[in-house]
Amino acid sequence: MNQIVTISFSALTENIKIARAVIHTFLTFRGVFDKDIFDTELAVNEAIANIIQHTYKGEPKYVVMTLRWTDPNVLEVLLRDFGPKVDVSKVKPRDLDDIRPGGLGVYIIQRIFETMEFKDVADGNLLYLRRTFLIPPKKDETGEA
Rank of each mutant, 00 (worst) to 15 (best):
D71H: 15
E46Q: 08
K17G: 07
L79P: 02
L79M: 08
R30T: 05
L67Y: 06
I18Q: 14
E46V: 04
L42E: 15
D81P: 00
I48Q: 06
K85I: 05
I23W: 07
I51D: 02
N73V: 05
N73Q: 11
I4N: 11
R80Q: 11
A11E: 01
A21L: 09
Q53H: 12
I23A: 07
V64G: 02
K61Y: 00
A49H: 12
F38L: 15
V91M: 14
I37M: 07
M1Y: 09
T25G: 15
K92P: 03
D87C: 05
T55R: 00
A21W: 04
E59L: 10
L75E: 11
R68N: 15
K17E: 10
D87N: 13
N45W: 14
I18M: 14
F38A: 13
D36M: 05
T55E: 03
N2P: 12
T40Q: 06
K17I: 05
A11P: 02
D95Y: 08
E59V: 02
V22Q: 09
T55D: 00
A21F: 06
L75N: 10
N15Y: 02
R68T: 10
S8R: 12
K85H: 08
T40Y: 05
T6L: 03
S8D: 11
D39L: 15
A19C: 07
I51Q: 01
F38K: 12
L12R: 05
F26L: 06
R20H: 11
I52G: 01
R20L: 07
S10H: 11
F82L: 05
E46L: 06
K85M: 05
D71G: 07
L78Y: 13
P84G: 08
Q53S: 12
Y62K: 12
A49R: 09
A19W: 01
A11R: 00
R94V: 12
T25R: 15
K61V: 00
A47D: 04
E59C: 03
N15G: 01
T28P: 09
L12I: 02
T6N: 03
R30F: 04
E76L: 09
N15S: 04
A11N: 01
F26V: 05
I7W: 02
F9P: 02
I16C: 00
P84S: 13
A11S: 03
L79A: 01
E46F: 06
F33P: 08
G58I: 02
L78H: 11
I37T: 09
L42A: 14
T25F: 15
A49Y: 07
D36F: 06
R30S: 03
F26R: 06
Y56R: 04
